[in-house]
Amino acid sequence: MSNPTVVHLALPKGRMQENVQTLLADAGIRLTFDRRGYRPTLSLPGFETKLLKPQNIVEMLHVGSRDVGFAGADWVAEKEVELVELFDTGMDPVRIVAACEPSFLQEGRPRPGPFLVATEYERLTRRWLERERLEGRVVRTYGATEVFPPEDADCIVDNTSTGATLKANGLAIFAELLRSSTRLYAHPGSMDDPAKREVIEHLVVLVRSVMDARKRVMVEINVPPGQLEALVAVLPCMRYPTVSPLHAGTGFAVKAAVPRDGLPTLIATIKAAGGTDIVVSDIAQIVP
């Protein structure tokens, strides 16, 4: 009797952890944690799970001790590893930027000549310096990179979501190296294994169903018989709306999943097309 397929999943510990765990919970995947909290059990069969720092997830995926995991695109680029990107969640968006005190800049660029760059992103920074033909020397940091200028470095390369921390430390952004977000990656060899690939692709379907649902809302509308086609024509639904007759032939009930970000304008359009009694509700998952 053959052993069941087990896929080794890495979940991020730290800044990304809450959003990823909420994403899984919204997909109906429950996590039960052990006493130490590093090896949760998933309610979804076929997975053995461990919590790791995002940087370590990238490395473990690269060497193949983990089959699939959530990590930031910035660390995949920094580690220069070949992984299969399965899905971009769009969560935890950050920019990798170069920043310094304004006095260090000359016409928006670092002053000519040698200078010191403090960063956790050594490879990304060196590639940027080479690309821009700058004479920077890299100093590796281990957190709190923003405090290095001006005494211990001329500028920094760091990640930022709002820029508030940089600004609070008197630093101004003068270059953007990369944009990153939380993404689901797989080891290439795991995707070449048909049994593992099937398990992994099922996880992708569940994750994608939640992310797609977050972009849409369900609208339910009543409309008189003579205005049904005009209403259907203005609904940006996924394929076709669901239409049901109302009691005594008084009209129709129309239901459609529509883009969330266009809702304020759409409601006015629906009203103009004859729609009434509009009900808007959240969607948990959308599976094609």
Rank of each mutant, 00 (worst) to 15 (best):
S2R: 08
L9Q: 03
K13F: 08
R15M: 07
R15L: 12
M16I: 02
Q17V: 03
E18L: 13
T22K: 14
A25C: 07
G28W: 05
G28Q: 09
I29Q: 08
L31M: 13
F33H: 14
D34V: 11
R36T: 09
R36N: 04
R39S: 08
P40G: 10
P45Q: 08
F47H: 04
F47Y: 10
F47I: 06
F47P: 00
K53G: 09
P54E: 11
E59T: 09
E59D: 14
M60T: 14
G64S: 04
R66E: 15
V68D: 05
D74Y: 06
V76T: 09
A77C: 12
A77Q: 10
V81E: 09
V81G: 08
E85D: 11
L86S: 08
D88P: 00
V94G: 00
C100S: 14
T119Y: 10
Y121R: 06
E122A: 15
E122V: 15
E122C: 10
L129T: 04
E130H: 07
R137F: 11
R140Q: 14
R140P: 06
V147W: 06
F148L: 13
E151V: 14
D152M: 15
V157A: 13
S161A: 15
G163D: 08
T165P: 03
N169P: 02
A172F: 02
F174Q: 07
F174M: 07
E176V: 09
L177V: 12
L178P: 00
R179V: 04
S180K: 04
T182W: 01
R183C: 14
G189L: 09
D192K: 14
D193G: 07
P194L: 11
P194C: 10
A195T: 03
K196G: 09
K196S: 11
V199G: 01
L203A: 03
V204M: 12
V207A: 14
K215T: 11
V219A: 02
I221A: 03
N222Y: 13
N222S: 14
V223Y: 05
L228F: 03
V232K: 15
A233Y: 04
A233M: 08
P236L: 03
P241A: 15
V243M: 07
P245Y: 05
H247C: 04
F252I: 01
A256E: 03
R260W: 13
D261T: 10
P264A: 12
I267Y: 00
I270T: 01
G275D: 03
I278N: 05
V280M: 02
D282H: 14
Q285L: 12
V287P: 02
V287G: 01
